[in-house]
Write a protein that binds this DNA or RNA. Structure first.
Lengths: 129, 129
DNA sequence: GTTAAAAACCGATTGTTAGTCGGTTTTTTA
DNA sequence: TAAAAAACCGACTAACAATCGGTTTTTAAC
C-alpha cells in the first residue's frame, strides 16, 4: 500500500472530524494548501477505492469517514514496508526491527510500550488456554 | 524513502554475501528473475546514491556492500512511513501503533520484545543519570 | 604506446501511481 | 422542467523505479 501526500492529509482530517463531505474537506484545505474541489473529490474517491474510507449518502452528497483507525493503518503500513525484509524462519527479525525503533523512544514511552506488550502477552496466554 | 522491488532484492542479497560486484549480483539474479547487467548496474548505482550501499574499487571493478544493517533500514522505513501520522504532542500515538503491530506477534516474540524494551529502558536510565 | 576487453556512465523509454483539474453526466430541488 | 449541485470521466503532469542500448572511461595485454 502506498499513500500520497494529500491522501495522508485527508485521512488525518477525517480522523479528526469523524465525517465530512467533499465540500467540507475542500473548504478545510483551501486555506492551508489549496487544490480544487475536483482534486479533493478524486482523492477521496481514490481513498474510498482503497477501502480506507467508507461513504454513504446523507441527503444529496456523500459523507466520507475513515474506515480504519489511525493505529490500524499505521500497523498496516509498518507491516507492508516491513514484510519484504522479514523472513518467516527468522523469528528475531521483527523483534530486532522493533528494537531499532525503540532506540528513539523516551523513558515514558518505553514504559507504556512495556505495559502494552505485557497486556498483549497475557491476553494471548488466556486465549491459548 | 521509497524502495523498488529490485532494490529490495539486491539489498537482501548483499546482506547475505557481505560484498559483491555487479557481475556477481547479476549472475545471482539471472536465474531467478532475469534482468540485464545494466539493469543491475543502475540499480546498484541508485542504491549507492541513496547511501544504502557503499562501494570501493577492488582491482578493476567496484565492490558493493550494504551500508546499513537490515534492522536499521527497517527502523528507518518504519519511521518514514509512520512520521506523517505521529504528532509531536501525542506521545501515545507511537505506542498505539506498536500495539497494533504486536497484535500479530506470538508469545515468544512478545517476550523477546519485552526484554528488549526493558533493556532499552535501563540503558536510557543509565544515560540520564 | 596502441588496442581490445571490461567496467562505468549516460540517456531514453516504459510502467506505475498520485496530483490536478476541465468538462460531461447524473441527480436534486426549486 | 430548468437551474444548481454533486458525481463521474478522461486527460495530462510529475515523481520514481525498472530496463537496456550505446558511449566513454579505465584496465590490461601485447
Amino acid at each position: 500500500m502506498k499513500l500520497g501526500e494529500l491522501e495522508k492529509l485527508i485521512l488525518g482530517y477525517l480522523w479528526q472530524v469523524e465525517s465530512a463531505d467533499v465540500k467540507q474537506v475542500h473548504l478545510h484545505f483551501e486555506k492551508t494548501r489549496g487544490g480544487s474541489l475536483n482534486t479533493i473529490q478524486s482523492t477521496l474517491d481514490r481513498l474510498y477505492k482503497k477501502a480506507l474510507l467508507s461513504r454513504h449518502k446523507v441527503g444529496h452528497a456523500f459523507q466520507y469517514q475513515a474506515k480504519v483507525e489511525r493505529h490500524e493503518l499505521i500497523g498496516q503500513l509498518i507491516k507492508s514496508v516491513t514484510n519484504d525484509f522479514i523472513s518467516e524462519e527468522d523469528d528475531n527479525s521483527l523483534v530486532t526491527a522493533f528494537s531499532s525503533m525503540t532506540r528513539e523512544c523516551n523513558q515514558e514511552q518505553l514504559l507504556k510500550l512495556e505495559t502494552l506488550i505485557e497486556q498483549q502477552r497475557l491476553k494471548l496466554k488466556q486465549e491459548n488456554r
